[in-house]
Amino acid sequence: MADSITVLAPGLLTTLQDAGRYGYQASGFSPAGAMDYPAMRTANLLVGNSPDMPVLEMTLAGLSCEFNCDCVFAMTGARMDAKLNGRPCKRYRTQRAAEGDVLTVGSALLGCRGYLAIGGGFDVSPVMGSCATSLKFGLGGFDGKKLSAGDVLKLQTPGVPYRKRTAKVPWHLRKDRSYFGDIHIRCVLGPQEEAFTAEGLRTFLSAPYKVTPASDRMGIKLEGAQIEAKDGYDIISDGIAMGCVQVPASGMPIVMMADRQTTGGYTKIATVITPDLHHLAQLKPGDTVTFHAVSADEARKLYRAYIQKLRKEEYDFLRF
């Protein structure tokens, strides 16, 4: 059989994701892409792929699959109980699989979304510049669908040489500090913070908010103290950036994520800073968040430091 893996059980929601389909938001396309971008990158780097290649994103419960060829793989993100041929299999390091091996990824013990990268990558044609799956539009990935049992996912071979040596990310560099269920998220107030009362802003920046089960790739829906607006929660529809915190008439905030609609008519009280988005991606229903405001200037500094850190990580792997 050609180089591929066979899906034995797909898990709750497993999709192919990459860095996202950017450049089409003006036409109404959500960018999609991995919710936990740094975890996706690390998974790729561990197997010798370039960092933005498509990987499998598993939600809450992982997949089981059989390898139809020898390959290397790596798992990052949520701590999911993974076994290769029944033996425990560590995350954040390069793993080897032989033809006929079976990988079973169980439910998430810490965090929400796990990533599986395979050396060489998946053999998928990009749609509009990206392999990210958009379930809403049936676009990208494997025919725009989530994985189901029996799917055979072709791998890219030959050509892309995979990492021969085993790589491992040391504990202190892993990105799981957010997985402990009670986190602080930094944001920049606005673009419509003036639509809220002083009391409303104070509530937003002090009250703990609980993640509801309605949260998904479109948005992290929160519940807690009601945020008071001055004069209604509706605005003339405008563009929605990644991480925007919308407050609809319920007064409960929603953080807009990868599958968000591109435009919307609810007030946006704040925007989560890019370096903190992946923490949100790992929240499970019942976890709590509190929001802290940073100035827009500070946020841009933090962004630059974050990008530098990602680049340094890439460089470290290249040198490895």
């Binding site: 944001c187 990644m242 925007c244 925007t271 800073i273 890019t274 841009r300």
Partner: peptide, 14 residues
């Protein structure tokens, strides 16, 4: 108006 760290909104009216 800034929208977080890497987006901005240019508003022309209400």
């Amino acid at each position: 108006k800034p929208c977080g760290d890497c987006n901005l909104s240019v508003c022309f009216g209400t």
